[in-house]
Design a protein around this nucleic acid. Structure first.
Length: 476
RNA sequence: GGCCCCGUCGUCUAGUGGUCCAGGACGUCAGGUUCUCAUCCUGAAGAUCAGGGGUUCGACUCCCCUCGGGGUCACCA
């Protein structure tokens, strides 16, 4: 029994969006579940498309989500290098093997000629098959022209770990390019060599490769390689539910979600739940639970739409599950500038108060402003309030003054404040909606805030009374 | 156009011939929790299981056709 080895093999052409990271996550889960290895490999055989900085970005994305790899470009490993552009001699070696066995040949046509064949096929509404133009006496391959695979078209019935049984006829098999005229291998060739050399037991990748898989099977045979287990993931769809999620349609970088204050565990949970569930009604899964319960066979065969609402809910669930110290550590970079003078103890108290209404950390400044600065008195908060608008300002002022007198004698502990507020309720004969609403608006000047007693307690006597005074003057 | 994949509430999904006039979650709406926002709780609306034919005593589940969506047919991955 060979040890399980899975890999994630992105091309360094940009950032990783949710769709891409899901493939990585599933490969990682399969490896971790089996106690095997997860490998990172860069497929940089298209020099034109390479984006500077994307290698580091890809690595950071993986590590930020906790998808640690055991072998990879930066950390090495026994079967490296893990960058395709550094493995050119390996591809040459295997190319020669194929040439030797008569299964590869030089492509003598110019790109224009091949393009003409292609257009001809298109005009006839037929799929383009290079092998229909296979040269009778190809020249000796000197490396300046493309090297093509000499396929042996046949029907295949294969089992894909997520798609199930798949059947195709010989018409989908073609002589694809192995090595380009620039000396670099194509993805089609390089990944097969690498997966073999790196002893990958699973190939988990996106649906865009489904159609070319029979070609890969044909090449495995020509090379006498065993085929790894192949698992094809459906695409994650954009908000319109049609096209696959793509960068140009606004798919966000996973690191952007981190920057907005989404927790890695929530992101992982959410991404896994797009197209996978364990068959129970459980929605929230820890990393460990995912490792224990994940099954490729239970991955949905249809594409799933990315629903940011659901992500937000799930992130809220995860935020609420954190202990306050942990939450504080995780959200350290999200405090507003006005919070700078305040100490950690104060900030933690504030954080505890807003924890249950926090969906992602970027909301912290808006939710906590009132604890760090006096907001300008906005009389409209009173004038537009459903309950308070029915009262004359003079009456409200009188009520607020009465409240102030009581609050002045408070030690501002939550217990005492609660007691006084209740006493006030009885003494004034007002509904909580009116009395509490008035005090809340006066002391916060915010459209919404945490509970009254808790808020006043944290604000403290001085700030609370100062704000109430400000409102009192405005009511004059 | 050929080939291939997919099609259950708005969304993510459960469901592998009868327990489903279809269950859960998000979202939405309504009510409750001494004020607002949120949390939490309760409830409601929401899916003729894409459509049509079969097979069967019985079909969301099996078969066929149609329609719809997607992928692929690169010296990109």
């Amino acid at each position: 029994m060979k040890p399980v080895r899975t890999r994630f093999a992105p091309s360094p052409t940009g950032f990783l969006h949710v769709g891409g990271i899901r493939t990585a996550l599933f490969a990682w889960l399969v490896a971790r579940q089996a106690g095997g290895q997860f490998i990172l490999r860069f497929e940089d055989t298209d020099k034109k498309r390479e984006v500077p900085g994307s290698r580091e970005h890809l690595i950071k994305s993986l590590l930020t989500l906790g998808l640690e790899y055991d072998e990879g470009p930066d950390i090495g490993g026994p079967l490296g290098p893990y960058v395709q552009s550094e493995r050119l001699d390996t591809y040459q070696k295997w190319a020669q093997v194929l040439i030797g066995s008569g299964r590869a040949y030089a492509d003598p046509y110019t790109p224009e000629e091949v393009q003409a064949f292609r257009e001809q096929a298109q005009a006839e509404k037929r799929p383009f098959l290079y092998r229909n133009h296979r040269p009778e006496n190809p020249p000796v391959w000197d490396g300046t022209m493309p090297l093509r695979f000499k396929s042996e078209p046949k029907a295949y019935t294969r089992v894909d770990a997520v798609m199930g049984e798949l059947k195709t006829g010989p018409e989908v098999i073609d002589d694809f390019v192995l090595i380009k005229s620039d000396g670099y291998p194509t993805y089609n060739f390089a990944h097969i060599i690498d997966d073999h050399e790196m002893q990958a037991t699973y190939v988990i990748r996106g649906q865009e490769f489904l159609a070319s898989t029979p070609n890969y099977l044909n090449l495995y045979e020509a090379l006498r390689f065993d085929s790894p287990i192949i698992a094809t993931m459906p695409h994650i769809l954009g908000p319109d539910g049609k096209k696959k999620l793509s960068k140009r349609d606004g798919a966000k970088d996973v690191l952007d979600y981190i920057a907005d204050g989404y927790l890695p565990e929530a992101l992982v949970n959410f991404i896994a739940s797009l197209g996978w569930n364990d068959g129970t009604e459980q929605e929230i899964f820890t990393r460990e639970e995912l490792i224990a319960k994940f099954k490729l066979e239970r991955v949905q065969r249809s594409g799933a739409r990315f629903d940011e609402n659901r992500l937000q809910w799930m992130n809220g669930v995860w935020i609420r599950s954190l202990r306050i110290d942990e939450l504080f550590e995780r959200s350290k970079n999200f405090w507003p500038e006005t919070a700078a003078p305040y100490d950690d103890t104060y900030k933690k108290q504030v954080l505890a108060l807003i924890q249950e209404r926090l969906k992602y950390f970027a909301e912290i400044p808006e939710l906590t402003r009132l604890f760090f600065e006096d907001l300008p008195v906005d009389i409209n908060l009173i004038n537009n309030n459903k309950q308070l608008k029915k009262f004359e300002h003079a009456n409200l002022k009188q009520l607020l003054e009465q409240a102030k007198i009581s609050l002045e004698q408070s030690d501002f502990s939550v217990e005492d404040l609660t007691k006084r507020l209740n006493t006030l309720l009885a003494a004034t004969g007002q509904k909580p909606g009116i009395l509490f609403g008035l005090i809340r608006i006066a002391s916060t000047q915010a459209p919404f805030s945490p509970g009254l007693a808790e808020t006043l307690s944290i604000l403290g006597r001085e700030t609370s009374l100062r704000r109430i005074d400000a409102t009192l003057s405005a009511l004059a």
